[in-house]
């Protein structure tokens, strides 16, 4: 093995190591492959399983009941999906509308002010949604927002605006605003500079911020439960109640629905792969 050692010693640190470690890499890859994909496979099989009793490894019969029920709009999954989509899209749009100017203003800060601002924006991200929900519930009830769609939307906006603001803080920290200044020098009004220069240049971050806001709302459980009072039927709540009721096929179908938009986003935009600091942990 002297030769192998000598060879790997001469390799660049980033190059795949040779020799015995290759087997280790394949083992690690195998474990990663299985553990990552197994849950998805199990969800798919469970969603079409019928009378799948112990100790069968695979369901004896397959049925599309849970899916046809969903497509026909029966059951609770279809309306819940519509509600969740509406909530997610509105949260994403409103979060960007708030976070874009907020992130830009925060990026102009320096020194302790910058740290204070980043810390403040981080607060709604770090605070457990459950704690935020319990703290805000009474205020929402008093304002007549409890158990209403706008109330849940506002509640989702609390963490979403925090996430997206931190995202835009990162975007504007490295954004070059000389083009905008140039446009102003040439006589553009602030609005013209914003709509004809800044926004077109930041189309991609705007889309990514929207997606981030959507995902925060899409996955939200405790805030929906506390502010929605169980009356606003978002998809995660229905999935949770189906699992707890032991209705595995419906739960798995709902869980697959929960997975589709995030995976689409990841596949289409490569979104999550690039924007490190503010990904939903």
């Amino acid at each position: 093995m002297r030769w192998a050692t000598a060879r790997s010693r001469s390799e660049a640190p980033g190059a795949p190591p040779a020799g015995a470690t290759r087997a280790l890499r394949w083992v690690l890859f195998g474990v990663l492959f299985l553990t990552t994909l197994l849950p998805f496979g199990v969800l798919v099989v469970t969603s079409v399983a019928r009378s799948w009793f112990w100790p069968d490894l695979l369901p004896p019969t397959v049925s599309g009941d849970a899916w046809t029920e969903l497509l026909r709009g029966g059951g609770r999954l279809a309306p819940a999906t519509a509600t969740s989509l509406l909530l997610g899209l509105s949260t994403g749009a409103l979060a960007v509308a708030m976070a874009f100017p907020a992130g830009r203003a925060m990026a102009r800060l320096r020194g302790w002010r910058r740290h204070l601002a980043a810390g403040a924006a981080f607060l709604p991200v770090a605070a457990p949604p459950l704690a935020v929900g319990v703290g805000l519930q009474y205020s929402f009830l008093v304002a007549g927002l409890g158990g209403t769609l706008p109330g849940v939307l506002l509640a989702h906006l609390v963490p979403a605006a925090g996430y997206v603001s931190l995202f835009f803080l990162g975007v504007f920290a490295v954004h070059d605003d000389r083009l905008e200044v140039e446009a102003r020098t040439l006589g553009a009004t602030p609005a013209q500079a914003l709509f004809h220069v800044t926004l077109p240049a930041l189309r991609r971050p705007l889309l990514e911020g929207f997606v981030l806001g959507f995902l925060v709302s899409w996955a939200q459980v405790p805030l929906t439960l506390l502010v929605g009072q169980g009356v606003v039927p978002a998809l995660p709540l229905e999935v949770l109640s189906y699992v707890q009721a032991g209705q595995d096929a419906r739960a798995a179908t709902g869980a697959i629905l929960l997975v589709i938009p995030p995976l689409l986003v990841m596949g289409l935009a490569g979104f999550a792969l690039r924007d490190r600091p503010v990904v939903v942990a």
């Binding site: 849950p39 969800l43 997975v259 990841m266 990904v279």
Partner: peptide
């Protein structure tokens, strides 16, 4: 790619998968 795949998946889905597995 595999390592990052579950990144945007809601936590609840991980919970449902764990119950079933």
């Amino acid at each position: 790619l595999l390592a990052l795949l579950p990144l945007p998946i809601p936590h609840l889905v991980a919970g449902v998968g764990a119950v079933l597995i």
